[in-house]
Design a protein around this nucleic acid. Sequence first.
DNA 1: TATACGTATCGTAGTATAACGATGAAACCG
DNA 2: CGGTTTCATCGTTATACTACGATACGTATA
Lengths: 113, 113
Amino acid sequence: MKPSSASDCCPAPKSEPDLRPIEGEEADEELAVLAKAVGHLARVQILRILVRRTTCVCGDIVDELPLAQSTVSQHLKVLKDAGLIRGEVDGPRVCYCIEPRALRRLKVLVAGL
Amino acid sequence: MKPSSASDCCPAPKSEPDLRPIEGEEADEELAVLAKAVGHLARVQILRILVRRTTCVCGDIVDELPLAQSTVSQHLKVLKDAGLIRGEVDGPRVCYCIEPRALRRLKVLVAGL
DNA sequence: TATACGTATCGTAGTATAACGATGAAACCG
DNA sequence: CGGTTTCATCGTTATACTACGATACGTATA
């Protein structure tokens, strides 16, 4: 097992202000996309796993869920397409981590309701 | 047009503390259900309409969306099933309003990510 | 180079969602 | 009573989602 350059892919939270509007058609669409991505138990659990560990998680996500590898991979893709997570290739494996900016955006949009 | 007893169905925010856990299997499931309900543009827009007006909205929701009446009715049902809104029958129409408790719950769960 | 490992992608089947028009049911108005 | 308004439900069609096994692909290790 390699040390893995996991620390590379998890960006520091970087609290640069988010200037995007919190209302309007575009914000609505954004919220819908983000919420839809979160709208599945498996994906909520994946997010929880990634949030809990500040470091990146390589693949062991599959072991924590009662789902086939291909299914988990699909859920990861959904989250990635929504921008909520990022996957960094690290040798033979892939390291996933939260995209803090998107998660913060989701929180802001929901809080704005 | 009747005065409508709209004020009856919109409960005061009532900030009684929410003792439900913010994590764990049950919370995850709850978040998934709520997020799924929000995960559609039309439903986000409906929520926005209901939040904006503190008073209940009787049916004019259909006029504000570019969707057929039956489609809007379905979306309302989804939101109602998720517990996010409530529909009070008021004579021939139905008054919809936010269920503050559920909305607050959603905010707490998302913020807890 | 061959083998093993970790993931992604493909193909598929079953189920759910979204949209609409048409129809129904309940409450009001004439 | 008969018609109108308001909303829900039904039936249908098209599309999307979820899950799985099988397979392909890239990277390390023997």
